[in-house]
Simulated scan of single mutants.
Amino acid sequence: MRKFFHSFTSLPLSPPFPLENPAGMDDYSLIIVGSDEVWNLRHPWYGGYPVFYGEGLRCRRLVSYAATFGSLTSSERLEGWAEKLRRFSHISVRDLHSERIIRETLGLEPELVLDPCLQFPQMLNASRDGREAASYIAVYGHSFPTWFQDAMRRWARDRGYPLVSIGYRNDWADEQWIDAGPEEFAGFISEAKAVVTNFFHGCVFSLINEKPFACVLSDYRSNKIRDLTQLVRAEHHVLTEDAIPSLDVILGNPLPTGISQRISSLRHRSSAYLSHALQ
């Protein structure tokens, strides 16, 4: 799989085309749609683009990899959209929520696979060269509930760790690093003592780097975070206000080995799906 991925990523990028006009793209024998919220009709920027449902794509075969409906609930109407997915020869999703939607609307059983960041960590994991983790707590996200902010501040203050917010301003943190780039972000999480977040990829990068993390659900991202943590058996890292007493357990200790074992198993399954779908 690693050989395939490195060969795949060494290929030149295809020419860009307007999302509103897929006819402007080149012809391809195979197109992979995904990952992330490509099927979320409520997405503020890309929701409702037919191209993500395969409409108008110039190719002989369509597959999806780690696609998700995001915050779209299964009760919302997909009439006119879901049927477009029948053109896909293979469908995989990255969360249980999207798996249920495909099953309920199309009567199909999609494959459940890992998000590419977890599937290919060698492309993202910043090496620490054997160094100890730095003495700061990474904060990634925004609009955290007040009870969560207060709990994080107390926990970090009692242990002498500064809270450093990256990518977004959080006035309750001790420091802000708003303009960090992708590589800086990867290194920052890699060096952190622990991570607090309400973002999906805050959880993902914690898992990649085997960092203790605490996350809280938000309305927009609840499906993604809940299903990810359930999938890798890290549900206890999702905090509610009643679970604050467990904070020291989840942030003050290494991740359980069962989580990395589960991720390894899911990587094998995701690789098998790709090998089959891309034949």
Rank of each mutant, 00 (worst) to 15 (best):
236 H>I: 10
67 A>C: 09
61 R>P: 01
12 P>I: 14
136 Y>N: 12
153 R>D: 06
110 P>I: 12
110 P>S: 15
157 R>C: 05
63 V>N: 00
3 K>E: 13
218 S>N: 14
69 F>K: 03
267 R>E: 04
5 F>T: 10
253 N>M: 13
159 R>E: 06
113 V>T: 15
222 S>T: 09
144 F>Q: 09
208 I>R: 02
144 F>R: 08
279 Q>S: 10
11 L>D: 10
45 W>C: 07
130 G>D: 13
151 A>S: 13
176 Q>W: 14
249 V>I: 13
182 P>T: 06
268 H>G: 04
256 P>R: 07
215 C>N: 06
272 A>Y: 00
97 H>I: 02
46 Y>K: 01
206 S>Y: 07
232 V>T: 03
101 I>K: 03
172 W>A: 10
269 R>H: 12
49 Y>S: 08
74 S>W: 07
177 W>V: 11
65 Y>M: 05
144 F>T: 08
76 E>G: 07
141 G>V: 06
195 V>H: 03
276 H>D: 13
74 S>G: 09
15 P>K: 14
28 Y>L: 03
50 P>S: 04
88 F>S: 00
183 E>D: 14
148 F>Y: 09
217 L>E: 09
8 F>V: 02
61 R>V: 04
189 I>S: 01
171 D>S: 15
169 R>T: 14
87 R>M: 11
247 L>R: 08
44 P>N: 06
195 V>Q: 04
63 V>Q: 00
5 F>S: 05
200 F>A: 00
130 G>K: 14
13 L>F: 12
83 E>V: 11
147 W>F: 02
159 R>Q: 07
226 R>S: 15
142 H>S: 15
128 R>Y: 04
236 H>L: 12
132 E>N: 10
216 V>S: 06
263 I>P: 03
250 I>E: 02
229 T>A: 05
113 V>Y: 07
188 F>G: 01
165 S>R: 07
99 E>S: 15
243 A>T: 13
30 L>T: 12
53 Y>D: 00
92 S>P: 04
189 I>Y: 02
82 A>G: 12
224 K>A: 12
144 F>V: 09
200 F>D: 00
233 R>Q: 10
196 V>N: 10
17 F>K: 01
199 F>A: 10
72 L>G: 01
96 L>N: 04
156 A>C: 09
172 W>L: 10
158 D>W: 00
247 L>W: 04
2 R>K: 15
260 S>Q: 13
241 E>P: 03
98 S>V: 09
9 T>I: 15
135 S>R: 15
151 A>M: 02
180 A>V: 11
183 E>F: 12
97 H>L: 05
25 M>N: 06
124 L>E: 07
48 G>V: 10
156 A>R: 02
242 D>F: 07
131 R>K: 15
269 R>I: 09
188 F>Q: 05
107 G>D: 12
258 G>K: 11
70 G>T: 02
17 F>P: 01
70 G>F: 01
30 L>S: 09
241 E>I: 05
